[in-house]
Design a protein around this nucleic acid. Structure first.
Lengths: 142, 142
DNA sequence: TTGACCACTTGCATTTTGCAAGTAAGATTA
DNA sequence: TAATCTTACTTGCAAAATGCAAGTGGTCAA
């Protein structure tokens, strides 16, 4: 299903950026992918302090784009789980390359040194571990 | 040299997106990387029809971030060449993974079929060819 | 000297972002 | 059962970003 945004052209980069090309969307994907965050308040608690209307808007767009999916919390109807679809998990290689670029050109990010070291030694392993963790959570929750 | 944008956090994704996370910046990088475009009017002619003030702004930011560089045209002082720095060329793996994601999830983009086929058969070759082309242009012009 | 070209800048309207307060549904507690 | 709390938002409005269309200044060629 298509986003209702009119594509600017039929270039793959343009189309991807129509979906993901803002400062917040990929941070939500990051939280889903790497930080085991699945609920609205967890995303709100990320260090960048996203605004509530922006978070709501981005989650909605990710669901519409089928990059993420949502389900009502099994025990508490006030809460929702968000999680990545296969389409969303498939963004991992791009995010890994983004992080590898950052390892070289943004080396001083204190919080990233552990991740940078792992990416340097075995990016394949990082990828496998992330996917394993995502699937494990889904087995338990979906 | 740092951008004058205050980072939102010390996460690599957040920092990269502070530089690149809008709809236009990576399209300019795309034109530099893949389409042999080096001048302002060439970027203006891309199918997405970027606004002149936005293009100017994004080129300036790419130069400040040292992702691109500029030089006055050797024969005509009214014109400028823009080209990717090593830092800019190093975005290629991320762009390749973005395109590979698009090959799976945005398969119907008519303009992309040739690129999709090449990425499928030999992404390493694509990468090498792009870098070769960039360096060749630089030997002739910088 | 004039007109064309190129790379922008500018003023203003529109859109997006983000703040802060508020709302509704559901859960918990007294 | 009612009051309070929690959660996920929505809303109104201000600020910032985007983008349109016109304009500007420097350079070049005729």
């Amino acid at each position: 299903m298509k986003s209702d945004v009119q594509p600017r052209s039929d270039c793959v980069f343009s189309n991807v950026l129509d979906l993901l090309g803002d400062k917040w969307t990929l941070l939500v994907v990051r939280d889903l992918m790497f930080f085991g965050k699945h609920e609205y308040k967890e995303f709100l608690a990320s260090p960048e302090s996203i605004a509530t209307n922006i978070l709501s808007d981005r989650l909605k767009k990710l669901v519409i784009a089928e990059i993420a999916a949502e389900k009502t919390h099994p025990e508490n109807k006030s809460r929702k789980y968000y999680y990545l679809t296969e389409k969303g998990k498939a963004l991992l290689p791009m995010l890994i390359e983004m992080a590898r670029w950052g390892a070289i050109y943004l080396p001083d990010l204190e919080r990233m040194q552990g991740v940078y070291a792992k990416l340097k030694s075995d990016p394949g392993k990082v990828r496998a571990a992330v996917l394993r963790s995502l699937r494990s959570w889904e087995r338990d929750h979906i």
